[in-house]
């Protein structure tokens, strides 16, 4: 009995060490925050449009998969992912929508004038309320909605080419985006 009890501490430590080992594996990201909204209907929003007064509302997005990108002119990583969004939109196969999060409309416009506009429509979320409803932590964040308007995936932080190739596009294919 004494011998068994004496083995307990080292056994517990080995469990701990195994945990550290898992943590050390490349590819494990403890900060990956799965959205609480996954597979739920996207929150309702009806935002004034940034360009040509084209408003952006949830219910008009139904019918085909949509990518919603929260961005702001004051956000540095947004500029980093911007060219990727441009390329994605240029394929014409993906419906990318933008929501300008806590940003002055004139600043957003200036950003898009400088770097190009990948969005089919842009909603102005001046106070960040729509962002809050989506459970946004910060910008940029990108959501994928299916044709029924359910959130299927969330990307926190700037999109990378790998995100788009390995996750976003395959997901859109399964969702039947044309």
């Amino acid at each position: 009995m004494r011998r068994v009890i004496a083995l307990v501490p080292v056994a517990l430590f080995l469990v701990l060490a195994a945990y550290f080992f898992v943590v050390l594996q490349p590819g494990y990201d403890p900060h990956a925050l799965p959205s609480a909204m996954i597979d739920k209907e996207a929150p309702a929003f009806d935002l004034p449009g940034l360009r040509d007064g084209k408003a952006l509302a949830r219910d008009t997005l139904r019918g085909q998969p949509a990518v919603i990108n929260f961005f702001a002119s004051w956000c540095v990583p947004c500029r980093q992912e911007h060219p990727l969004l441009m390329r994605l939109a240029a394929t014409g196969k993906v419906a990318v929508y933008g929501i300008a999060y806590k940003d002055k409309p004139e600043d957003s416009t200036r950003l898009l004038d400088q770097m190009g506009d990948p969005y089919r429509a842009i909603g102005i979320d001046r106070l960040g309320r729509t962002g809050l409803d989506f459970g946004v932590y910060g910008v940029p964040e990108t959501y994928v909605l299916d044709a029924a308007g359910h959130i299927r995936k969330r990307f926190v932080g700037p999109l990378t080419p790998a995100d788009i190739e390995k996750e976003l596009l395959p997901l859109l294919r399964t969702l039947g985006g044309s």
Partner: peptide, 25 residues
């Protein structure tokens, strides 16, 4: 606090794990 910073330098992390294994284990 942020395993991220840790995992970006795998040499450091592996070394520490080894050290803990030897000392504590």
């Amino acid at each position: 606090t942020s395993v991220h910073a840790f995992a970006t330098d795998p040499a450091r992390g592996t070394f520490i794990l080894l050290l803990l294994l030897v000392a504590i284990g």
